[in-house]
Design a protein around this nucleic acid. Structure first.
Lengths: 154, 154
DNA sequence: CACAATTCAATTGTGCGCAACTCAATTGTC
DNA sequence: GACAATTGAGTTGCGCACAATTGAATTGTG
C-alpha cells in the first residue's frame, strides 16, 4: 500500500509546508482571531461579527451588499450573521423604501455604544503581536497589495 | 433608535477597518484560498485537506496529534477531515499497535502519487501574488514571528 | 499492584465561508 | 408598457474551526 519512507523521494522543496506563504497567512490569521476571541467574548461578539460592527461604526446605515463589499463576504455569510447581531440587539434590519430589494442595517443605541468598549482591542492586539509599528505598517501594506493581486488574478 | 450619522462622533481611528493588520491577514488569507480553490478542485481537495497532504508528503505515517501540531488544528477539525481523505482513497487510518490511543495516517499509493500533480501549485500561487521573491520571503518571516508572538501571548 | 492523572481521538454543537439556487424588485431595451 | 436581464437578499448544503465533552489507553505515583 505504501512504500517504506526511505524508499520514496523526499517531498519537493516547493511542497514543504513551512516554505509556503499562504500557510503562514492562514496560520497567523487564525492565531490573531484566537487572541481576539477572549476579548470579543466580553462583548458577546465573534470576530466576523466584530468586523461587521467596525464597518457600521464607521458609517451607517449600510446595506447588506455594501457590508459585503467592505468585508469581502457574500449574502450567504452575512445574512445569518446580521440576523444574529439583530438578535443580540446591536443592529436593526430594515427594507429600504427607495429600493425594496435592499436591506439597510442600522445600529441600535446598544450597538453604537459598544464601540466604546471595543476601542481598546486593536492596541491590545498590536501589543500581543510583538512587532514594531513600522513592521505592522509594512505588513499591512504588503498584505493589501497581495490581496489585490490575488483578487485580480481571477 | 439611532441618531443621525452627522450627530455621532466619527469612529475612532484605531477602529477603522482598513487600519487593522488582522483584517488584512484575514482578507489576504481568504483571497489566497480562493486562488487555490480551482487548482485544488482538479485534485479533489479543499485547502485544509491539501495542507494535511503536504504534511504527509513530507513524512508518513503521522498520528492525528502530530498532524494537529504541524497545522495548528485539533482533533475536532482533523478527525472528520481525515475521514474524508480516507473516503477519497488518499490516506489510510490505522490504530497504532504500540499505543492504541494513537491513529496513524498512512498515504495510499494514490495519495503519494497526488504530490506530482500538486507540485506546480505553489509556483502558480507565487505568480498570482504579484510580489517579488524577496517580498514573499520577508512576508513569510514576519508572519511567522507574528504567529509565534500571538501564540505566546495566551 | 492500585488508581489518579494524563493523553489521544472522536463526537456534538455553533458559527463562519462559499457555491448554488430561489425569488422578488429594479433596470434596460424595444 | 412589455419583458428579458440584472441586482439584492435569503436559503440550503458542505466543509472547516473550535469549544466542550466523552471514553478508552497509557503513564505516573505511592
Amino acid at each position: 500500500m505504501t512504500t517504506p519512507e526511505e524508499a520514496r523521494p523526499a517531498s519537493p522543496e516547493a511542497l514543504r509546508l513551512n516554505r509556503q506563504v499562504c500557510f503562514a497567512m492562514y496560520s497567523a490569521s487564525r492565531a490573531a482571531t484566537a487572541v481576539y476571541r477572549p476579548m470579543l467574548e466580553e462583548l458577546g461578539l465573534t470576530y466576523p461579527q466584530y468586523l461587521a460592527m467596525l464597518v457600521l461604526w464607521e458609517a451607517e446605515p449600510r446595506s447588506v451588499r455594501e457590508l459585503g463589499e467592505e468585508l469581502g463576504l457574500d449574502s450567504g455569510t452575512l445574512s445569518p450573521l446580521l440576523k444574529r447581531l439583530e438578535a443580540l440587539g446591536l443592529v436593526q434590519r430594515r427594507r429600504s423604501a427607495e429600493d425594496e430589494r435592499r436591506v439597510e442595517i442600522f445600529l441600535t443605541d446598544a450597538g453604537a455604544a459598544l464601540s466604546v468598549r471595543a476601542s481598546g482591542i486593536p492596541q491590545r492586539l498590536a501589543d500581543a503581536a510583538g512587532l514594531t509599528a513600522a513592521e505592522l505598517d509594512q505588513l499591512r501594506e504588503t498584505l493589501g497589495r497581495l490581496a489585490n493581486a490575488l483578487h485580480a488574478s481571477h
